[in-house]
Lab assay of single mutants.
Amino acid sequence: HNLTITQGKLFFHYNPKLCLSEIHKMEEVSGTKGRQERNDIALKTNGDQASCENELLKFSYIRTSFDKILLRWEPYWPPDFRDLLGFMLFYKEAPYQNVTEFDGQDACGSNSWTVVDIDPPLRSNDPKSQNHPGWLMRGLKPWTQYAIFVKTLVTFSDERRTYGAKSDIIYVQTDATNPSVPLDPISVSNSSSQIILKWKPPSDPNGNITHYLVFWERQAEDSELFELDYCLKGLKLPSRTWSPPFESEDSQKHNQSEYEDSAGECCSCPKTDSQILKELEESSFRKTFEDYLHNVVFVPRKTSSGTGAEDPRPSRKRRSLGDVGNVTVAVPTVAAFPNTSSTSVPTSPEEHRPFEKVVNKESLVISGLRHFTGYRIELQACNQDTPEERCSVAAYVSARTMPEAKADDIVGPVTHEIFENNVVHLMWQEPKEPNGLIVLYEVSYRRYGDEELHLCVSRKHFALERGCRLRGLSPGNYSVRIRATSLAGNGSWTEPTYFYVTDYLDVPSNIA
């Protein structure tokens, strides 16, 4: 807008934040220059609390790290170098490059900038070799853009010569660093050979998330399962459950009422301010606690030095998902009996873990797994792929695949051998790939016309006998059925096997 004052003059007093240069501009645009008398524009009460600059400061050096910015700028000295009290560095987070010096300023003089007072450097006698002032900004957020400017702080001049310097606002972004852990990993099994893994992005990506790394490792069953005799009275049979499938998407929606109208769909109840505040506090606490764990609990591995020492970490090797089922080394339970199943799973520490690289999504279907087997899954978020990966501390989750139908069934015939004193040795093959492992066998036998009897055969007993022995049988026709019990439950009964026990007292003698 054009402003013209045809008559009258300007009068400025007691404006401590208004620089004289701005008042002189007002004289020019209003056409009143030359009308004012000496005392109409006070030299001592206008701009006496402001830094009124008329020179431009330029930054000469900028260096960044993930949490620091090192700045240096060209030296500046007023005509009387004693008038320079120091520099004021202003900075704040700036997602967009549209910041002005006066953003967030209120009537009390406060604003949204963080201000650092910096002492002037030592003055050199040689004007050509003056030290460049600077400042190291610490405690910054990774991968965050900051708006920065600097200006001088000078003393009051009796001659009211307006001098000083100020830089333009520059924008500097800190470097990326390792992201925080992925949030809320959930693993479920939808079949006997697959596990579905879902997660949420890290709360602090500290860069642009480029991919996720998912490692999985087959877990050995508890050692007590191999040692305890679950045929003993009072000892509860062990059981394991597989990871249940995901709930429906509708039930997972946030901010939804727990109660549904019987007449149909209901609208979600909005969260109160107290609920939102509580969630923010919980989120802040979780982030602080995660940072504490990362800094205190997890110790970084030592990389190899120039002395030739090897990095103890196993090298990563990509495998196809079809090879995942046989990740671990199978060892027989008892070496003397080769027909026992290889369900003991000690994992070799030198073995390469299978892994998958996930790009542009937060889910993965891990296939080719062994049925009813526990897996430990390790999830890392990465925001750099080359020249070397920059990934987060791992988040861990466990899951067990679903049982395989008929995996616990005894394959092959049940054979028998009759000894003296009416002892019958029953023999059968253990299931080759049971659900988890076989903890015991149930032997059901009966003599024709009598009630059915049951015998429990422990895992250890089966390994020693290759089956079991029935003792003290009365003469007669017998039928026997056997079924295995694994961590997933009972298998199917075998087809009945028949044998006849004679009275050993009636056996004919070869003595003449």
Rank of each mutant, 00 (worst) to 15 (best):
W216S: 02
E227D: 06
R286E: 10
H352Q: 12
L464K: 04
A399N: 07
S283F: 12
S363V: 14
Q219P: 13
F246N: 14
E351Q: 06
T343Q: 11
C382L: 00
E378V: 12
T288H: 10
A394W: 12
R313V: 14
E281H: 11
Y478S: 00
R218N: 12
P434M: 02
S304R: 03
D503H: 02
G308V: 15
N383I: 01
S243Q: 07
E389R: 10
W493Y: 13
P434G: 04
S479T: 10
P354N: 11
L235W: 11
Y448V: 10
P300Q: 05
S348W: 09
P332C: 07
K460Q: 09
G476R: 00
E417F: 13
K236P: 10
S315W: 09
T272K: 03
S367D: 13
T343D: 03
L505H: 09
E290R: 12
P338G: 09
C468N: 01
G489S: 07
C231Q: 01
Q429T: 10
T497P: 00
H454F: 01
S344I: 07
E430T: 13
S363T: 09
L293P: 02
G449Q: 11
R447C: 08
F355S: 09
T494E: 01
Y230K: 11
D222T: 08
V299T: 03
P332T: 04
M402N: 11
I410V: 15
R353I: 13
A336V: 14
E247A: 10
H254T: 12
V423H: 02
N339G: 07
Y478M: 00
V345P: 11
K278S: 13
K406V: 12
N422F: 02
G412H: 11
R376D: 14
D323V: 06
T288C: 14
A463N: 08
S474D: 08
R301T: 13
Y259D: 04
T485W: 08
T307G: 09
L225H: 06
H425M: 11
F289W: 05
D222Q: 04
G449F: 15
T494K: 04
F372Y: 14
N422Y: 11
V331H: 14
S283H: 09
D409L: 12
S304N: 15
Y375S: 00
E350I: 03
T303W: 03
D323M: 15
G374K: 11
D273Q: 13
K236L: 10
G306V: 13
F462Q: 11
E217F: 04
Y478K: 01
E356M: 12
K236I: 04
E260M: 06
S203R: 13
K236D: 09
D261S: 09
S243V: 09
Y445Q: 02
N490L: 15
R319V: 10
V439C: 03
S203F: 12
A309Y: 11
T340E: 14
C269V: 10
G322R: 14
E362R: 14
L505D: 04
E362T: 10
S392L: 01
Y396H: 13
P354R: 09
E217I: 00
H211G: 09
N206D: 03
V423R: 15
D222V: 09
E350W: 09
V423A: 09
D503G: 04
P238I: 08
E221T: 04
S243H: 10
P205C: 10
E247M: 06
V214M: 09
S474A: 10
G489V: 10
G449W: 07
E310R: 07
V411C: 13
E356R: 08
E356A: 12
I366H: 01
E282M: 11
P387S: 09
R286W: 15
D273M: 09
V359T: 09
T401S: 12
P387A: 10
T328C: 09
T288G: 11
R376I: 11
A407S: 05
D385Y: 07
P349C: 02
V297Y: 13
T502E: 05
R376W: 13
N422T: 09
Y445W: 07
S315G: 14
K361T: 07
A484S: 04
I209Q: 04
N255G: 07
D311Q: 09
E217P: 13
E217S: 11
A394Y: 12
T494A: 06
V414Q: 04
R483E: 00
D503K: 15
F246G: 10
E249W: 09
D408G: 02
E224P: 14
N422I: 02
V327K: 03
T343F: 07
P431T: 03
M427Q: 05
L235R: 08
G308T: 12
V327F: 07
A263C: 06
A263R: 12
P508K: 02
L277A: 07
R481D: 00
L235Y: 06
E282D: 01
P338R: 10
S315D: 09
F372P: 00
F355V: 09
V501Q: 08
K302T: 15
R218E: 08
L277F: 09
L464H: 09
V443T: 02
V329A: 05
T307C: 04
V359Q: 13
K317T: 07
H416S: 12
K236F: 04
T386I: 15
N208S: 08
S239A: 05
A220I: 11
K236R: 10
R471Y: 12
L237P: 13
Y212V: 11
K236W: 07
P205T: 07
Y212P: 00
Y504K: 10
N477R: 10
I276A: 04
P312T: 10
R481A: 09
S248T: 13
A381R: 02
L232K: 04
Q384F: 09
D506K: 09
D229Q: 14
K406Q: 13
Q275K: 12
L437Y: 02
K287H: 08
I276S: 10
I418T: 14
V296K: 14
D385W: 12
E247P: 13
P354H: 12
P312F: 07
G325E: 06
G489Q: 15
P354F: 07
A394V: 11
P332M: 10
L237M: 09
N208F: 10
N206R: 11
C269E: 10
C266F: 03
H371Y: 10
L455A: 13
D506M: 13
G472F: 09
E362P: 11
Q429G: 15
E265V: 07
P270E: 04
S444M: 10
T303A: 05
V457M: 13
E356D: 05
K302V: 11
D311G: 05
T241M: 07
H454M: 05
S283M: 08
A336P: 11
R353H: 08
P496R: 05
S509C: 02
I366F: 13
G472K: 13
D250V: 05
Y448L: 07
S367Y: 05
V423K: 07
K361Y: 12
S344M: 08
Y230W: 09
Q275E: 04
G467V: 06
P238Q: 09
W216R: 07
S248E: 02
S474P: 07
L369S: 01
E351Y: 02
E258W: 13
Y375G: 00
L369K: 02
L440M: 13
Y445V: 10
T210R: 14
P338E: 08
S363C: 14
F285R: 14
L379V: 06
S223T: 09
S341C: 10
E282N: 02
F337C: 11
D450W: 09
P245E: 10
V359A: 10
M402G: 01
L228T: 07
G306A: 09
E378H: 09
C231M: 01
